[in-house]
Design a binder for these strands. Structure first.
Lengths: 218, 218, 218, 218
DNA sequence: CATGAATGAGTATTCATTCAT
DNA sequence: GATGAATGAATACTCATTCAT
């Protein structure tokens, strides 16, 4: 009884430690994967950056692939949790919701960072089929959120009725996802400014408007 | 000497053959680099796909890096040759020139294909500093072409005067470069249709226009 | 001190527990060594089969080698204790004593099992020199027991005077030791039947006897 | 034409060299597998014994398992080729054929050597399922040869009608296969003598015969 | 032009073992 | 007793590259 209670506590504490360690390792791994790619990053690289030997990684992850998977998994989930309340608030104006989604996504992409790039690109192929399916499912969920906003806007007349919502989703995601390649924190544009510019171009394009005033009155 | 005299002719012929062989190898390599990445593609993979042994590759390329470099170099140059006449035709209407550029780029990206992706993304890091500089220079030249069109359009009033030309270039390139990830030749959209949709969104955005008719009269 | 006084009793009890645990671990280890060999069995395999972590094994055994040694040692001793009274009963008829020895050995080999195989074969090389010597000594003692029976039989005229006792010992042991490779508990032959068949062939061979009747009158 | 002819010759020569090299490596590997077991023998060990680096082994064998397989395969086939003519000569006297089989087997086992042990024992488990099946098939073929001899002898009256042929096959194989564990080339018994002693015991057992003379007149 | 043999550095992964808790 | 973290050495295997032929 006492013993059980005690070990229960210890279990929890140890688990917490372990979880923290895992998170720290994932953080390091993401940075290296980003910089050198999955194949270009050896477990020794990761271990060295963590301050221990490669063999020790196996006390936390069953394989390199598992490490990649957990890195993607955790980050994507956190990201979707952030987006969801905004995206699915069906009473909000679609234009505003789109704006918010772009803001959040760009912010996440640029400030918190490079983690995302991995998940959309080539590194996905290094996942096992099972893991790949799960990550792709999460990714698709993001598309679904955006898609709904566009469709809502078409109904309310905020967006042109003849646009292809699937296509617009791709366009928006494409633009945002590539910001991570050219964005520099020291550059002239802040994430918020970048988000705003993307939003405006997606909304109105680059052609001069007849009634500029109206377009800005939000 | 007989041998020398003879080999003079043969050399030229052989060189031609060699160049053809090199081109064929590069073709194979690009496909594999695209599918598995630079690190994920071994010289044996490439050689096997070519029908000979890995050692033989060294009769054509000094190193794996050289092969990557030549693959990028050649392709980028061919691509720029295609764009240049359109882009630098300063008498053409900017709107039309932009349309053409997008068409050519999308077409190249999707039909001729996957080769491009490599050059913009992560594989560039595997080039030696010297080679990297040259490839980046070519890449920048593309941006310059697009940039000029946008600036021209701002002067002629075709594009809004307050847009950030640099930014718009990034947006357009981002959209086009990612088509390669989601495009399927069997899908519902042809490259030409995709190019047209990109062009329209970049031009007018997704907001409904007041005078839809006017916008389409081209 | 209280602790000391108390621990006196507890120690004894704990030791008993410990001994029991050790025996249980050895049991598990033997099975795994048999199935996968010494090199093919990791301490983690053993620990997992025991339901705890590998590190815990070191609370019972100084090393993997020690575990192997104790497994062999204990089993061989138990086995020899069984054989000895029969083998060294110098008043019994050699033919009967041989029969009994074969019965016991086959039974032990097949029912209690696979443990023995290890000791005669290749796994011995993984013992330290000191331990190896001790195990080989026990093994040799078995040969000695059998040898004496054969020699006794030659004196009494039960066995042919010109047979090579050393050689016959090897033959008998060889036959019995290999039963473990092909015996199946679900097969058509029981251990007792197998022992009987071995005994008869060793005694009379496969050639038809002139007086079959006489040979069976036991 | 000339070129083809030439390369044909070279091919053959190179193949011959390669085959010779492979055979040499297999020879080395067998010795090491015998001494240290499959798991106990590293590819570095083998390579070192061959005088080159471990990586080079992969120019000859796809994997360690392939090396083990080829070692077993080749040797078993050679062995069976030797046995077959004797075993399947259905006009020869079963007693004589049995004698010859034992002689050949023991000789092969002891003079040419230790190679065999591997194939009958535990190392088989390291083969891939496909390879394992093939080796077991060859092994079973050996049993079949022996089995037929025994059955022939039962028909001709050379062997007791009531013996279990399958069992006798096991006994004979068991005895021979274990010789390799205790045989020493410097020992008092030659392979031929060992074969003869095994033959006699299997034929007549260790009990004194009534008519010793008759049994020896061969 | 092509290849087989060879290699040294590197890869992910496993393992027996230690130690503080 | 038991465990998690850590490690150094080893493992099978891969790879880009060289070189003699």
């Amino acid at each position: 009884m006492v013993k059980r209670a005690g070990s229960g506590y210890k279990m929890r504490k140890r688990s917490a430690n372990k979880a923290a360690s895992k998170a720290a390792i994932i953080e390091v791994a993401i940075d290296l994967f980003w910089e050198n790619g999955y194949n270009g990053t050896s477990l020794r690289d990761i271990a060295e950056a963590c301050g221990f030997e490669a063999a020790n990684l196996y006390n936390y992850f069953r394989s390199k692939e598992q490490l990649l998977y957990e890195a993607m998994q955790e980050e994507l989930e956190r990201f979707l949790e952030l987006l969801e309340p905004v995206a699915s608030d069906s009473r909000g104006a679609p234009v505003e919701r789109l704006k918010r989604i772009i803001e959040i996504h760009v912010e996440r992409m640029l400030v918190i960072g490079r983690r995302y790039k991995m998940m959309y690109d080539s590194e996905i192929r290094h996942l096992s089929p099972v893991h790949r399916k799960r990550i792709v499912a999460l990714r698709d969920y993001y598309s679904e959120l955006l898609f709904n906003i566009i469709e809502d806007g078409k109904k309310t007349g905020d967006f042109a009725a003849d646009i292809d919502a699937r296509f617009v989703v791709l366009i928006i995601a494409s633009i945002i996802m590539r910001t991570v390649f050219w964005f520099s924190p020291k550059g002239r544009l802040s994430p918020a400014e970048i988000a705003d510019m993307i939003y405006k171009i997606v909304l109105d394009g680059i052609r001069p408007r007849k009634q500029e005033v109206k377009a800005r009155k939000k």
